[in-house]
Computed example of a mutant assay.
Amino acid sequence: MTIKDVERIESILSDAGFDYQLELEQGSIIVTGPSDIVASEVSLQFASQLLNWVKPRRLGRVFDSAGGFILLALSR
């Protein structure tokens, strides 16, 4: 499986009206459902605290889960 495969499957699911998030982990697709209201609240509280710590100290940037990052493992 590649990232392009995951994107293709996500598109098919979205067109069919399913609200699933897909992750690619070691070549396998992991399907997760949308977050519930409690998880959303906890996530926002955590992000708020993190931003309040990082910003005044100019330590970097803080993003939410919609940032669309692709993490790559680098081997040595």
Rank of each mutant, 00 (worst) to 15 (best):
M1F: 10
M1C: 11
M1T: 12
T2L: 05
T2P: 01
I3Y: 03
I3P: 02
K4F: 03
K4M: 05
K4W: 01
D5R: 06
V6L: 14
V6H: 04
E7I: 13
R8L: 15
I9R: 12
I12E: 15
L13D: 04
D15Q: 15
D15Y: 07
A16N: 15
G17P: 04
G17Y: 05
G17F: 05
G17I: 07
F18D: 07
F18A: 07
D19K: 10
D19F: 02
Y20I: 04
Y20L: 10
L22Q: 10
E23D: 11
E25K: 14
E25V: 15
E25S: 11
E25P: 00
Q26P: 03
Q26S: 14
G27W: 12
S28A: 14
I29T: 09
I29C: 10
I30A: 13
I30K: 15
V31P: 10
V31D: 06
G33R: 13
P34N: 07
P34W: 00
S35R: 08
D36W: 10
D36Y: 06
V38E: 13
V38L: 14
A39R: 15
A39C: 08
S40N: 14
E41M: 11
E41P: 00
E41Y: 12
V42P: 02
S43I: 07
S43H: 13
L44V: 13
L44R: 15
Q45H: 09
Q45Y: 09
Q45I: 11
F46V: 09
F46A: 09
F46K: 13
A47R: 15
A47D: 06
S48Q: 14
S48C: 07
Q49G: 08
Q49F: 02
L50T: 05
L50C: 00
L51F: 06
W53C: 00
W53R: 05
V54P: 01
V54K: 02
V54H: 03
K55Y: 05
K55C: 00
P56F: 02
R58H: 01
L59C: 01
G60T: 03
G60F: 05
V62M: 05
F63S: 08
D64R: 09
D64K: 08
S65N: 09
A66F: 00
A66E: 09
A66P: 03
G68H: 07
G68E: 03
F69M: 10
F69K: 06
F69R: 03
I70N: 03
L71C: 03
L71I: 06
A73C: 06
L74N: 07
L74Y: 08
S75K: 12
R76A: 13
R76I: 08
